[in-house]
């Protein structure tokens, strides 16, 4: 990419998305605190700060589930693509909500006595050999640190300088954060309140996430495993009619990177199938405004020459393509032309 960095590359869609997400967070916390103060009254009353701590904590957990669902959903259906384009903003918001939960909890539970509040909170636990004896705040703090690292390195500056490969490995730490949060809940609130509601919510959440990820992963695995033999450098990508207008199919010759074969108003084009931004699968994208658009973050390339529109200067390799008896043939000789 060659364009001066800006703090946030907002456009009308992203602003709308962020406003809706912020409104949802505010509404969730307000409803949780409001309903909680109505339901828990009398002897079982929960104080307002504790309700706020819980509301922010539950909100962060729900947001993390949504963030984790967006990726596989976008691989299973194009309808989730707009969510994927804006996932980074939702991830940063999740960190901010989790940080508010942690800050309030530290101030509320850790400010008794003269000790360091962070030390008090991080060592909070019961006694004996029960799960309640585990310092349950520690996994929560580890998860918060992972979310911080992800939010802090979410800008494209970090992606460009760490490199897509390392950046993606760092950001896969979110899976570890998710497991830590399950530990934080199971060894924390589930110990003081043996409510079946927590049990069901955690298990349903985990089932939904793993089901979506496995379904999307198996689909991608099958597609990635398929390779086609080239005959004199030409590979049969399939029937032209099988490619919907504005969409693509992926072909991969043995020993070569995948190629995205797009059908668009100008005909058929074949370009390198891996986005220069984060390595997104271009064959799963669409033609938007005359450009091939990556399904992950909306990076664009002109189908005829693989060049990104100005002011960007990325260029992906293109491949010669021809249609013979209604079948699309792609020439694959190396990765560039």
């Amino acid at each position: 990419m060659s364009a001066t960095y800006r703090a946030v590359n907002w456009n009308a869609h992203k602003k709308k998305y962020d406003l809706i997400a912020l409104a949802c967070v505010a509404l969730f916390v307000a409803v949780y605190v409001g309903v909680g103060s109505l339901v828990f009254r009398g002897n079982g009353a929960i104080s307002a700060p504790v309700l706020a701590i819980r509301a922010l904590g539950v909100c962060a957990v729900v947001m993390l589930h949504v963030v984790l669902m967006i990726g596989p959903m976008a691989r299973l259906t194009h309808l989730a693509a707009p969510l994927l384009y804006n996932r980074r903003h939702l991830g940063v918001m999740t960190f901010v909500v989790a940080l508010a939960h942690a800050a309030l909890a530290t101030l509320y539970y850790g400010s008794f006595g003269g000790a360091n509040p962070l030390t008090v909170v991080l060592t909070m636990s019961g006694s004996g050999a029960s799960p309640g004896a585990f310092p349950f705040v520690v996994p929560g703090a580890v998860a918060l640190m992972v979310l911080f690292l992800m939010a802090a390195t979410s800008h494209d500056f970090w992606l460009a300088n760490l490199g897509a490969w390392w950046w993606k490995w760092i950001h896969m730490g979110v899976y570890g954060a998710y497991v830590c949060i399950v530990g934080h809940l199971a060894l924390g609130v589930m110990q003081s309140e043996k409510s079946v509601v927590y049990l069901v919510m955690i298990l349903v959440g985990a089932g939904l996430l793993s089901g979506l990820h496995i379904a999307a992963g198996v689909r991608a695995w099958k597609r990635d495993a398929r390779t086609d033999d080239a005959v004199q450098g030409w590979i049969d990508a399939g029937a032209l009619d099988a490619i919907p207008m504005g969409c693509a199919i992926s072909v991969r010759a043995r020993g070569h990177a995948p190629v995205a074969v797009y059908r668009h108003e100008g005909g058929v084009s074949a370009i390198h199938g891996v986005c220069a931004h984060q390595g997104g699968p271009l064959a799963e994208g669409r033609v938007v405004g005359g450009c091939v658009t990556c399904p992950w973050h909306g990076y664009q390339y002109k189908p005829e020459d693989g060049c990104a529109p100005a002011p960007y200067d990325d260029k992906l390799a293109t491949h010669e393509v021809k249609v013979v008896d209604g079948r699309v043939m792609v020439r694959i000789e190396g990765d560039s032309r």
Binding site: G44, Y109, G126, A129, S130, P131, G132
Partner: peptide, 27 residues
């Protein structure tokens, strides 16, 4: 991950009750 989640939740649910009752935050 689902196996880890089930193991952690099972430990938290079946692992016995903290006798002091301060194993987690309370109202």
């Amino acid at each position: 991950i689902p196996l880890l989640v089930v193991a952690i939740v099972a430990w938290g649910w079946l692992g016995g009750v903290d006798p002091t009752g301060v194993g987690a935050v309370s109202p």
